[in-house]
Design a protein around this nucleic acid. Structure first.
Length: 351
DNA sequence: AACTCGGGGCG
DNA sequence: CGCCCAGAGTT
């Protein structure tokens, strides 16, 4: 059954209230793509400045294709989910080399590109190319769950198709405006807590509103328990330079810079730290001072950071970058030139 | 299907 | 402090 009023009310509302955002200046697929990648699990207000800086450095796909990864990471610093930045470059390379610099207007081809999944592919198809394709994100699942009072678990990936079919059943036209309107509604009116139902343009047809149970949706069963990890952060200083290491190319905060770090389970980190520095870097250190650092909360774990300030035992050991190219010794004022995740940047004032 | 991957905002 | 978010990749 086609619900004409839903489409009309929603799109009219969107045209009135839609926010002025830098990636809405035009429909350039490059800008739409970049904004959608940045917006994955990230708030609009956070993305705006990152987006503007990025576009200034790399205004088009050809410019990005010639960038080096280190510079891209620096622009991404603090935004999180850093694999997005690496996939961004890989994707740019593919677009230039295999698609002549033009994003394919093809859902299946888009989905195969690095960093582009079902949501982002749908967003590019609809927002950049105005093609009638669903773009189902967390906002859309919440809006649709409430509108239809769907009792299905949005954490279950196999239910994605249910929402995609519901979206297509409601999409009467203007896919570019319609998909953005759905998300805008979820972000501003149909919010997770205390939704502003009285201001909603589609409240007449909303089952959950009629039932007075909007806040009970969407159904979400999965819950994750955060593990607490005691992390020794090793601040090794020699001749006014601090040792930093490039993190491995997989895992947490891959390829970003950090201080040598090692989890420990003892009451105190000394033993683990000495062993770690010997095993990983063949360095013997003298521990000068312990200082309790801040907690840092990730999606699935919590770091309780303990700063371990050290100096070298043998000064002839000072620098062995030949065997360990991922090590740098830098002055305090140089630290900001490297791309650090927020967990480490928090510590700069404690050094 | 379950797990991994950041950080900020909010009540 | 717990929950939420314009999700995707890996296993």
């Amino acid at each position: 059954m086609y619900d004409f009023s839903f489409h009309r009310q929603l799109v009219n509302w969107y045209k009135k209230v839609c926010r002025v955002l830098p990636w809405r200046e035009n429909s350039d697929p490059y800008r739409i793509w970049l904004s959608e990648i940045m917006l994955q699990q990230t708030q609009v207000s956070t993305v705006i400045e990152y987006f503007n800086r990025f576009i200034k450095s790399y205004p088009n796909i050809e410019a990005l294709n010639q960038a080096n990864e280190e510079d891209v990471f620096k622009l991404w610093e603090g935004l999180g989910y850093y694999s997005r930045a690496r996939n961004l470059l890989r994707c740019a390379k593919t677009i230039v080399e295999e698609y002549n610099g033009i994003f394919p207007k093809d859902l299946q081809k888009l989905k195969k590109l690095p960093g582009i999944g079902p949501y982002t592919a749908g967003a590019i198809m609809s927002i950049a190319y105005n093609e009638p394709v669903p773009a189902v994100d967390g906002n859309v699942m919440r809006v649709i769950s409430r509108y239809r009072m769907l009792e299905i678990n949005i954490s279950d990936t196999k239910n994605r198709s249910v929402f995609e079919e519901e979206v297509m059943a409601l999409m009467g036209g203007a896919p570019r405006e319609f998909n953005q309107a759905l998300m805008e509604l979820g972000a501003t009116i149909c919010t997770p807590k205390q939704p502003k139902c009285l201001d909603c343009p589609v409240k007449e047809g909303c089952k959950a509103f009629k039932n007075g149970t909007a806040e009970q949706y969407p159904v979400k069963l999965k819950k994750i328990q955060k593990k607490v990890v005691k992390m020794a952060i090793i601040i090794l200083e020699h001749q006014e330079r601090i040792m930093i290491v490039k993190r491995p190319n997989t895992g947490l905060m891959a390829n970003l810079w950090g201080f040598p770090s090692v989890p420990y389970t003892d009451e105190l980190p000394e033993f683990t730290v000495n062993q770690h520095m010997k095993d990983e870097f063949d360095l013997e250190v003298i521990i000068r001072e312990l200082e309790e650092g801040p907690k840092h909360i990730f999606t699935h774990l919590i770091w309780e950071m303990q700063l371990v300030k050290c100096s070298l035992k043998n000064t002839k050991d000072t620098i062995k970058p030949i065997e360990f190219p991922e090590i740098q010794w830098v002055r305090r004022e140089q630290l900001k030139e490297y791309a650090f995740p927020t967990a480490f940047r928090k510590l700069f004032s404690m050094l």
